[in-house]
Amino acid sequence: MTKLNSTEKKTLEVLTKSFFTFKGDSHFRSYRQATAALNRLERLGLVKREDHDQSMYVATALAREWSQYPNVALEDVRAWLTP
Rank of each mutant, 00 (worst) to 15 (best):
36 A>V: 13
22 F>I: 04
42 E>T: 15
34 A>P: 02
80 W>K: 10
70 P>S: 03
44 L>G: 08
62 L>R: 03
76 D>H: 13
45 G>K: 02
19 F>H: 12
18 S>K: 08
20 F>G: 02
80 W>G: 01
79 A>Y: 07
44 L>N: 05
53 D>Q: 10
30 S>K: 04
50 E>S: 12
30 S>G: 09
47 V>A: 00
83 P>H: 11
10 K>F: 01
2 T>I: 14
26 S>N: 10
19 F>P: 00
17 K>N: 11
73 A>V: 02
40 R>L: 06
73 A>T: 00
11 T>R: 03
73 A>W: 04
52 H>C: 12
6 S>P: 01
67 S>E: 09
64 R>S: 07
35 T>N: 15
2 T>P: 03
57 Y>K: 12
47 V>N: 00
27 H>Y: 15
14 V>H: 03
15 L>V: 13
64 R>H: 13
80 W>E: 09
75 E>S: 15
24 G>D: 15
42 E>D: 10
45 G>T: 08
75 E>Y: 02
82 T>E: 09
9 K>R: 13
41 L>P: 05
58 V>C: 08
79 A>S: 12
30 S>D: 09
37 A>V: 00
26 S>Q: 11
64 R>P: 01
43 R>F: 06
83 P>S: 14
28 F>R: 00
78 R>M: 11
82 T>L: 11
